[in-house]
Amino acid sequence: MTGELYTIPFSHYCELARWSLQEAKVSFVEYPYLPGVHTFFGPMERIRKRRSGGESTGKGQGTPLYLTSDGQILDDSWQILSLTGLTGLPVSEDMKALLNYQIGPQVRSIVYADLLRPEKGCPVSWWQRGLWSLGGFRRKVSSVMKQQMVGDEERQAKTLKDFEEAIEKVEAELSKPDGCFQGAPNELTASALALAALFAPAVCPAEYTGGFVPEIKPETFSEAHQERIRQWRQRPIGQFTLELYRRHRMRCVSRS
């Protein structure tokens, strides 16, 4: 039996879910939606309400959503990560909060600040591409995304500052021989997978999404952001992420 994974295809939270399912050797079909399109046309809220007896779950059209082959719902990346059964220390609650509420949203905000424009090469249906090609719809969605996730220049500067502080905290844990990332990148652990997936957009691994979305190359971005990518790639967290992707990402794709 095959499950259903509903995503925004290039989302790093959805990448965490996708990679986890592939690593768990779970059969699934992915249904990708572009931002904005997913709000109006995605079935995620309908699925959630159907499984909760018609009650709103508060998560609306949020992705990822994994509907198992027997009808159960796994409602976020961390629930799906638990399917992998990977060995190694689990993600500590402090590190999970740091990754989920700081690193993840900050990466998204920084990348969107530089790259709010029509997506190209995403594996979405023709009608989604048609909607996104409509200038009015695209501008409206981009405006809402920028307002909600990016903000003005002052907010962007603060996000970059907070992001650097969050990186330092993660790198402090990476440096501990008995920290939650021990064994990686030689070994793939749940903690390492979570960190690599959520930090990946900052360093653009060639293997990001396991080939589901065409490679997002640094040259796609402005010169200023390309310089940030170069700097982040040289840091311990960047080297760790790139090496984990290089060693482990495509292995589970070819196996699935």
Results as ranks from 00 to 15, higher is better:
126 W>G: 08
71 G>Q: 01
17 A>C: 13
128 Q>M: 09
125 S>N: 00
37 V>K: 04
121 G>V: 02
25 K>S: 11
21 L>W: 12
161 K>S: 08
208 Y>E: 08
193 L>C: 08
218 P>S: 08
45 E>M: 10
15 E>M: 09
99 L>R: 11
5 L>N: 03
122 C>D: 15
199 F>N: 08
202 A>H: 08
98 L>G: 06
165 E>N: 04
185 P>H: 04
217 K>L: 15
88 G>T: 11
169 K>M: 11
91 V>T: 15
46 R>V: 15
219 E>T: 14
201 P>I: 03
252 C>W: 11
31 Y>C: 12
172 A>P: 07
130 G>Y: 15
246 R>F: 05
209 T>E: 07
67 L>T: 04
135 G>F: 02
79 Q>H: 06
67 L>Q: 02
191 S>P: 03
23 E>F: 01
186 N>E: 12
188 L>Q: 10
174 L>C: 06
160 L>A: 00
212 F>K: 14
122 C>A: 13
180 C>Q: 07
50 R>M: 09
182 Q>N: 08
53 G>Q: 01
175 S>Q: 14
66 Y>H: 06
85 G>Q: 10
15 E>N: 15
109 S>N: 01
178 D>M: 09
176 K>A: 01
76 D>W: 03
30 E>C: 04
84 T>I: 06
36 G>Q: 10
6 Y>W: 05
196 A>D: 14
9 P>Q: 04
209 T>R: 13
216 I>G: 08
167 I>Y: 13
31 Y>K: 14
154 E>C: 00
42 G>S: 15
55 E>C: 02
141 V>H: 04
117 R>A: 02
139 R>E: 03
203 V>E: 13
102 Q>R: 15
200 A>L: 01
32 P>W: 06
12 H>F: 04
145 M>K: 01
227 E>M: 09
38 H>C: 05
250 M>K: 12
159 T>C: 00
27 S>E: 03
191 S>M: 10
94 D>R: 09
199 F>S: 12
19 W>D: 07
106 Q>A: 07
180 C>A: 06
87 T>N: 14
191 S>H: 12
221 F>D: 07
150 V>C: 00
38 H>G: 13
38 H>L: 05
253 V>P: 11
183 G>Q: 05
246 R>M: 07
123 P>Q: 12
50 R>T: 09
200 A>C: 07
183 G>K: 07
223 E>A: 15
88 G>S: 15
11 S>L: 05
89 L>E: 14
227 E>V: 12
120 K>C: 04
